[in-house]
């Protein structure tokens, strides 16, 4: 663990990313405390005001404070990122460990399912599912999660295949420990490192996906503010109010960038050999 911290602390980019990630998280949690205005309260006398000392990031079409909306939006956007990646990771671990531990038919079945899910362009699948559901923030989170677990499953399975042959596992099996216990106590902790990396890289992908859906008008519905739907509102008046498009756009860019830098940093620090196998699961969630 010390080696890990030492390696990570030398990676200035990753540290920078980590700092941004942390700051964002704190601001999102503290949004009600730090937001200067009510994010939902319109002020018809202050429609589309440019950034000023009263409204640092200006106001929107309804006269709502953009900074406050961005802060509350960070909450929703990050929540979407965390929850959907949480769901994806849980499914991925469950299926991946089952496949890796049992091998044989289970493995084949799970891997075929993974192949199958990977054949669906994610945005099409998301749209199809959303067309049948009543949209809410929870639906969006679950749907993004349900369509994003394949990477983790593959990763966990690969780790299992490698770890299964190790002495401590063979020993536990020989003394008659149950499969669940072996998976839970011995293999999983060892497989967590790449999963952690995959999660860090999955969050920005989920945030991008949500903002894309919101941009199409199919994401989290108003009155919830998310960066995606602030942008969506802003595109109508982009030349009149650049601040409605530039700030949320930059916020998404910075967040995604920071998560990616942090994720790569963690990966390199954990084990440079992981590069190849984890790399492809990061990035964009389409």
């Amino acid at each position: 663990m010390n080696a890990f911290w030492r390696a990570l602390s030398k990676n200035r980019l990753a540290l920078g990313g980590g700092a941004v990630v942390l700051t964002l998280a704190v601001m999102a949690v503290a949004a009600p405390l730090v937001a200067p205005h009510d994010p939902h309260k319109p002020d018809t006398k202050r429609i589309l005001e440019a950034p000023s000392s009263r409204h640092w990031l200006g106001t929107d079409q309804v006269g709502r404070d953009v900074l406050s909306r961005m802060l509350y939006g960070a909450r929703v956007s990050l929540a979407v990122g965390f929850v959907s990646v949480g769901i994806a990771t849980a499914i991925g671990i469950a299926l991946g460990s089952a496949a890796g531990y049992h091998g044989g038919t289970v493995d084949a079945a799970v891997m075929r399912l993974v192949d199958l899910m990977l054949v669906f362009p994610r945005f099409f699948l998301l749209l199809a599912v959303l067309a049948f559901l009543t949209p809410s923030i929870w639906t969006i989170m679950s749907v993004i999660g349900l369509t994003g677990w394949m990477g983790v499953a593959r990763l966990v399975r690969a780790e299992f295949l490698a770890l299964k042959e190790r002495e401590f596992v063979i020993w536990s099996q020989s003394v008659g420990a149950s499969a669940v216990r072996i998976i839970w106590r011995h293999i999983l902790p060892n497989a967590m490192a790449p999963v952690l990396v995959a999660m860090t890289l999955g969050i920005p992908a989920a945030i991008l996906t949500e903002s894309g859906l919101s941009f199409l008008g199919l994401g989290v519905r108003p009155p919830h503010a998310t960066w995606g739907n602030i942008l969506n509102d802003g595109k109508e008046v982009i030349e009149l109010a650049w601040w409605l498009s530039v700030y949320p756009g930059v916020a998404i860019l910075l967040t995604v960038l920071s998560y990616n830098l942090l994720g790569e940093g963690i990966r390199d620090a954990l084990d440079p050999r992981l590069r190849q196998s984890v790399g492809r699961f990061g990035g964009r969630g389409r």
Binding site: L48, Q61, E236, V237, E239, L240
Partner: peptide
């Protein structure tokens, strides 16, 4: 839209 008419 009203905004486009009035301001843009």
């Amino acid at each position: 839209t009203a905004l486009q008419y009035q301001r843009q």
